[in-house]
Amino acid sequence: MEIIQTPSASKHDVLTGLLALREKTPALENIFDAFSPLLKAQEDGRILLEKWSDFEIPEADALRFEQGVPILAGMDMPNLGNFFPEIFWTMTTALAKGMPAIADKVTAIIDALKDSDSLNELARSVWEEDNNAIEVFAKDANVDIAILTILGSLSLKPFMNRMKDEAAVEIENMFWNKGYCPICGCFPDMSLLKKQLTENAEYMAGHGGQRWMHCSCCDHQWRIKRNICPWCDSEDYKKLSYLQSEETKTERADICDTCKRYYVTIDTRDLTEMPDPRIAPLSLVHLDVKAQEEGYEPMAETLWNSL
């Protein structure tokens, strides 16, 4: 069984990939300039957390998992130590740098929390999705709750990414057919259609592309059926369609008219290089715009498809 697998790490670092994309699509320069500090900060966080191992992945229960419960669901927040504050401040600086329009609100957060020793409490509130606790935290510090929540979520992502590789090993022999991540339960920010050669096929090697979803939170990739909506599981082919520009046939927004949700897709079968899914969605914002204009909502809210 090879339904779930984590491809090897990208050969290129995030910044190199962003520069290449920026060169390829100069019309989106502003988008890249706004979000590249954040993506770089995420990568720096991932590198920093190579030293972090104070966590234990829950043992996978095949029955529970295969019924659709992600492996990390219900897991208590591990001890994040001093890593969380360090990543939080890196992320704060990156957000202020990339988005000058909200820099004053970010500066207010820096001023209010710079001497705080309770940042890990913020992490716990975000981990447990305890909105009341986040609200109390924001009120006590007198800061913008929306931006604080964004910063808390962004700062937790590198931890999810760090745990992902070990969690993927736990579930590698199990079956998963859901549209949300088998590890952390988040919805995908994009999908990739990949050509897969069947080595043992005697003559023909199929041209059909396998659909691989990319998790918007932990960066895991998993394969699902192509004829299903990852959000509502609908297989009604009359309501599953996609939006595509005439010029670029390798990129599209897959839409579902049952649940009115969409996600962006890159068909990699004809591409010379495999896109880096950590940054590729940035280059597809025109499809986000189009899909949202048509009345569809994104499956995973990201900074670039929601701000």
């Binding site: 050669l197 069947t198 096929a201 023909m204 390798t250 004809d270 591409l271 010379t272």
Partner: peptide
């Protein structure tokens, strides 16, 4: 095609896995 990020035509077309790029 390569400058546009696309694989060569013979590789795209090959149905047997003979041509790889």
């Amino acid at each position: 095609r390569q400058q546009a990020g696309l694989i060569p035509m013979c590789v795209k077309t090959c149905p047997t896995g003979t041509m790889n790029y």
